[in-house]
């Protein structure tokens, strides 16, 4: 008994030793800064002055006085409402296409995945050209079809929709890969049984595929909401929050507050509000998942 417990102690020690680089890294570079930002969010901390405790003033200012905070929250929510369904449905459709047993399918999969490994800045620059009202291919095609040609990023009404459409570019990315792995895990026997019962394509999709991959949908949904609340690169590279604040997204505003205005306390409060929003949305999704997610195990 004594020998066994010594072995267990040794094993535990070794385990912690092996995990220690991660544990130390987590404490120093994640947990520490996270807790520090919580403290800082209750301070007036203007680089490089010493933080001064001001209680809830930052939060009060954000909710009661800061117009740009509300605008950025609205813009981000608007973006999320459209981007999340687009990203989930688009990626699922793409994954289903990539799940076909075709010749050379691995080449297609690689090609479709390429946008995910392309630099966000490069993609943003590419889309600036595509969306160009005078010379962009999108307006060219719209013109040929006799449809109105919006000014896209130059028009405050169209700037957000333009960035939402741009998200189509990423439907072959990580979300699709996760869906693809889920689709490949659906037992073939279920489809065969459905076929014997006379199920058509839609029935199989609705009553076999969707329930079987529902945990994957939940995972992708949560990740998509988190990611869309963190939209930054497009605003940073393509619009700088304009025109007229129409693409001033939450994280871009936070970046401005922190690094242009040097108000780290205020930026920390913004970060914590974002965390709370995303946390609440995630909890809601998890709570609701009981109604529609099917765990086969």
């Amino acid at each position: 008994m004594k020998k066994a417990s010594r072995l267990m102690v040794k094993e535990a020690r070794d385990g912690y030793l092996f995990a220690s680089p991660w544990i130390i890294g987590f404490i120093l570079f994640y947990l520490g800064p996270i807790l520090a930002t919580l403290f800082l969010s209750f301070t007036e901390y203007k680089i490089p002055l010493t933080p001064k405790w001001i209680g809830l003033e930052n939060y009060y200012s954000l909710f009661m006085k800061d117009v740009q905070f509300k605008v950025s929250l609205y813009n981000t929510a608007y973006y999320t409402i459209f981007v999340v369904p687009l990203s989930i449905c688009g990626s699922l459709a793409m994954a289903m296409l990539m799940n076909k047993n075709l010749r050379g399918i691995t080449v297609y999969r690689t090609a479709v995945y390429l946008p995910a490994v392309t630099s966000g800045v490069a993609v943003a620059l590419l889309w600036m050209w595509l969306l160009n009202p005078s010379m962009g291919i999108i307006n060219y095609v719209l013109g040929k079809l006799g449809l109105p040609q919006p000014l896209w990023l130059q028009d405050e009404k169209w700037a957000k929709p333009a960035l939402i459409i741009m998200q189509l570019y990423y439907i072959g990315g990580n979300t699709m890969v996760v869906f693809l792995s889920g689709l490949q895990g659906v037992p073939q026997s279920l489809y065969e049984a459905a076929e014997i019962d006379g199920a058509n394509w839609w029935h199989k999709f609705r009553h076999v595929t969707i329930p079987m991959i529902s945990p994957i949908i939940l995972f992708n949904l949560i990740m998509a909401v988190i990611n869309s609340f963190q939209v930054f690169t497009q605003a940073f590279v393509m619009t700088q929050g304009g025109p007229n604040n129409s693409t001033m997204f939450y994280v871009y505003y936070l970046y401005n507050v922190a690094f242009w205005w040097g108000r780290l306390g205020y930026a920390a409060a913004l970060a914590w509000i974002l965390f709370v929003i995303v946390f609440i949305l995630t909890v809601i999704q998890l709570k609701l998942s009981g109604r529609w997610v099917y765990y086969a195990g």
Binding site: K46, N244, W261, G262
Partner: peptide
């Protein structure tokens, strides 16, 4: 002023609204 960038952005937004006739 030490807060120049913050003041510029906060004030500039009103100027942009004026330029757009809003």
């Amino acid at each position: 002023p030490p807060s120049y960038f913050e003041l510029r952005q906060k004030a500039g937004i009103f100027f942009e609204e004026a330029s757009l006739g809003k």
